[in-house]
Amino acid sequence: MTEGGKVIAYKPSMLQMGAYADPITPSKKITVIENPNEDSNENGIAKIGGIPAWIQDDENLKTLDYALQINGSRLNKAAPYHKGILVGGIGYLMLKKNISCQDIDAGKFLIQTS
C-alpha cells in the first residue's frame, strides 16, 4: 500500500495473458457508462479519466499520467474474493506516457485512505 502496486501492460489479445505471474481468473467484464454529471475532484466514484478525487495529498508523478480510479465499495462488489483490499479508500491507476509494447513497469497502482 505504501509503495504502489506493480502495473504490467500487455498487447491487446483475446487470449488470457500471464507472462509475469499467474493469470487473473476468473476474468471479469467491465461495463463503462458515460457520467451525465459534471466531473470534479469531489467525485469519488469509480471512473476512467476525468479529475482524480484524491483522498490525501495530490500525487504528482512526473513520468506517469492518471488513468482511472476505483473506490473500495465498487471493487468489493466486482471482486468479493478480494474484499477490503483498498482498505475502504480509492485505488488510482497511474500509467507511463505512450506505452507502445509489453512493459513490466507500465505504471503504479496507488491506494489512498482517509
Rank of each mutant, 00 (worst) to 15 (best):
L110Y: 06
I30F: 08
E38H: 01
N98P: 00
K47G: 15
K6Q: 12
W54K: 12
N37E: 15
G84Y: 02
S13N: 08
M1C: 09
Q16G: 05
G88W: 02
K62Q: 05
Q56C: 03
K47V: 13
I8G: 02
T2Y: 11
I48Q: 15
I51N: 14
E34V: 13
M94T: 03
A79Q: 10
P36Y: 10
Y20V: 07
L64N: 03
N35S: 13
N41Y: 05
H82R: 10
L86I: 06
G18C: 08
N43R: 09
I70N: 00
I33S: 12
S114Y: 10
Q69V: 04
P36V: 09
L64W: 01
K83Y: 06
T25P: 01
K77V: 11
E34W: 06
D103C: 07
D58Y: 06
P36H: 08
K96W: 00
M14H: 06
I24P: 02
Y81L: 11
A106N: 04
D39L: 12
D39N: 15
K28N: 11
G50E: 12
I30V: 15
A79M: 13
I85H: 01
T2L: 12
E3A: 13
T63I: 01
I85W: 05
E3L: 12
G49C: 11
L15G: 02
E42T: 13
L75A: 04
G5D: 03
K29G: 05
I99R: 03
I111E: 00
A78D: 15
M17D: 01
P52S: 08
Q69Y: 11
N60W: 02
A79G: 00
E38T: 08
W54M: 07
K6F: 01
N43Y: 12
E34S: 09
A46S: 15
E42N: 11
P80V: 10
S13E: 01
F109M: 03
D39G: 12
I8S: 04
G107C: 03
L93Y: 01
V32S: 13
I51A: 05
K28V: 10
P23G: 05
S27C: 08
G5P: 07
I90G: 00
T31C: 04
A53F: 13
N60C: 00
I104G: 02
L110T: 10
L61K: 00
N76H: 07
I90K: 00
Q56D: 10
I8K: 03
K28P: 02
G89S: 07
